[in-house]
Amino acid sequence: MTALTTKANIKAPDEFYAELLAVHEGLSKSESDALNARLILLLANHIGNRAVLSQALRAAALKD
């Protein structure tokens, strides 16, 4: 079974982090909330694997 990757997996992490903040630039709190929600849904669909998604949900809730 595929497990959630919790080891660093993104090349050039500073660039990704900057890009993540950049898409939120100039947005109101509610616009940012909406963008985050869309981002989560798109990434979740990309992952697709239900077991991995459940692990990610637990990990994000700091429950593991």
Partner: peptide, 23 residues
């Protein structure tokens, strides 16, 4: 509030992408 944010996100994405339509 958060459930409305996700609901609206599903609908907004569904206009452009098939990905969230089943939701």
């Amino acid at each position: 509030e958060i459930s409305r944010i996700f609901r609206d996100a599903v609908l907004d994405l569904s206009e452009r992408y098939e990905a969230t339509r089943p939701m």
